[in-house]
């Protein structure tokens, strides 16, 4: 039972990491990276490391996503406003 839960979470982590590289639209890629970090925090919690899980959920899923989105907005304001289109 526990092994199947680990395998399911790790499989979705791999899928999220693949889509973070695959998307052409950078905002979709950042959201996929946030999903990756959140599931990684869940995996840390299932491996009984709640310290690392709290840090990963706050830094990875919250703050780094916000910083990436701010950086995307800054790049969009600098360049010509041609939005990315999905592949």
């Amino acid at each position: 039972m526990n092994g199947y839960a680990h395998m399911a979470v790790l499989a979705i982590i791999v899928i999220a990491a693949f889509y973070a590289v695959w998307f052409r639209d950078l905002l979709s890629s950042v959201i996929s990276l946030a999903v990756f970090s959140l599931l990684l925090a869940l995996e840390y919690f299932m491996l009984q490391a709640p310290d690392v899980a709290i840090a990963e959920a706050a830094i990875g899923a919250g703050l780094s996503t916000a910083i990436y989105i701010i950086a995307l907005r800054a790049c969009k304001a600098l360049k010509s406003p041609r939005g990315g289109e999905g592949r």
């Binding site: 709640p50 709290i54 840090a55 706050a58 703050l63």
Partner: peptide
């Protein structure tokens, strides 16, 4: 579980 770094990151969120 937790500590200064983890709680500070949550408040900064």
């Amino acid at each position: 579980p937790g500590g200064g770094f983890q709680g500070g990151a949550v408040v900064a969120t």
